[in-house]
């Protein structure tokens, strides 16, 4: 791969994460590779159980071990392999160079500490700020994410904030130390659409102003269409397709991506008489995959799909797909 004009801030190569359970191993993440450039927003889509959250948590060692084990791979944050560093260094990275926004703002904020304390904690821990400075910066951060009367709310506890406001606080904490990479794990899934619109607007603005790389995990393709530059589609613990956002929506190559795009109704445009469905259930990842994970639900599956796990191959600029049947550009004709 030729060197682009900007270096990747984060590179993940061949990541494999396995959970040991009483009924055997679960291969949650299988040889996942991707990279992110500064200022880029990478969307990660997939259903529950597709391994998207586990992948991101593996990156910065957030999974409890045991049962989780990152068995293989490299996670290069500006060239430094996060899977090899000491726990102390990893603690510096978490909340410092890598910020994390979790899905549920109620369970990820500590209910017995004030919001101000929780924002100041990373500032004092990572940036060595004094109490006064940290306080000033905390107010700045709360204003940045659009909380009215920021100075007066530092002493409030999480339960005194609404869902949308709590998610803003989470974003403020994640942003506290100017991270190079911000990982957002379904940050708006628990919120209503009008509040989601507010949060998306804030994230767009912050990305323009602060220029960090953002990895945005979601199952909502509508959100992805609106904010992402590039998209990873995950299924059964693997990346099945990667593409810039326009080709992904206009010319999806993997049968799963295509089916997924067809199952969602829209608030405008044509209204289909019947929703398209993907028959069957997502796979259970009991063993290391030796075949395509989507084979049992795929309309195009043939013998090779049952015998061999396809590797990702380039089909266009920045567009790769793991399928023996990379659908030709006849997608449009077929739908019509």
């Amino acid at each position: 791969m030729p060197d682009g004009d900007t270096r990747n801030v984060l590179e993940v190569k061949n990541l494999q994460t396995v959970f040991g359970t009483r009924s055997g191993e679960v291969h949650a993440v299988n040889s996942v590779s991707f990279e992110v450039k500064p200022g880029e927003l990478l969307g990660v889509v997939g259903e529950s159980g597709s391994g998207k959250s586990v992948t991101m948590m593996s990156l910065i060692g957030l999974l409890p071990s045991p049962p989780a084990e990152v068995r293989q791979g490299e996670v290069l944050l500006e060239g430094e392999d996060l899977l090899k560093v000491t726990p102390a260094r990893l603690r510096d990275v978490r909340g410092g160079e890598v910020g994390f926004i979790f899905q549920d703002p109620m369970t990820s904020l500590n209910p017995v500490f004030t919001v101000g304390y929780q924002i100041m904690e990373p500032l004092r821990r990572h940036m060595g700020l004094g109490k006064k400075q940290a306080r000033a910066r905390a107010v700045e951060l709360l204003e940045l994410v659009g909380i009215p009367g920021a100075a007066g709310r530092l002493g409030d506890f999480p339960h005194q904030f609404s869902g949308g406001m709590r998610q803003r606080v989470m974003i403020a904490i994640a942003l506290a130390c100017d991270p190079k990479v911000l990982i957002a794990d379904e940050p708006t899934t628990a919120l209503d659409v009008t509040i989601q619109a507010q949060i998306l607007e804030i994230v767009e603005r912050l990305r323009r102003e602060l220029g960090m790389a953002i990895i945005w995990i979601t199952h909502d393709l509508g959100v992805i269409a609106g904010i992402a530059d590039r998209v990873l589609v995950m299924y059964g613990g693997q990346v099945v397709e990667q593409a810039p956002v326009h080709p992904l929506f206009n010319d999806p190559r993997h049968p799963y991506t295509r089916a997924l795009l067809k199952t969602i109704p829209s608030v405008s445009g044509e209204r289909a008489a019947k929703l398209q469905v993907i028959e069957g259930q997502p796979p259970i990842l009991g063993a290391a995959p030796t075949a395509c994970p989507f084979r049992s639900r795929c309309p195009l599956a043939f013998e090779r799909c049952h015998a061999e796990n396809p590797k990702r191959e380039d089909v266009g600029p920045g567009h790769d797909v793991a399928c023996f049947h990379p659908l030709a550009q006849t997608a449009a004709e077929e739908t019509a």
Binding site: V193, T194, A197, Q198, G222, A225, F249, I264, S266, V267
Partner: peptide
């Protein structure tokens, strides 16, 4: 406002939708 807040699963449409009404407050 509610309708305009629903994200469109189409990047082309999402780009041109400048008229999105973002409600303030809770």
């Amino acid at each position: 406002a509610l309708l305009s807040a629903v994200p469109e699963p189409d990047p082309a449409k999402a780009g041109q939708r400048k008229d999105r009404i973002v409600l303030q407050g809770d």
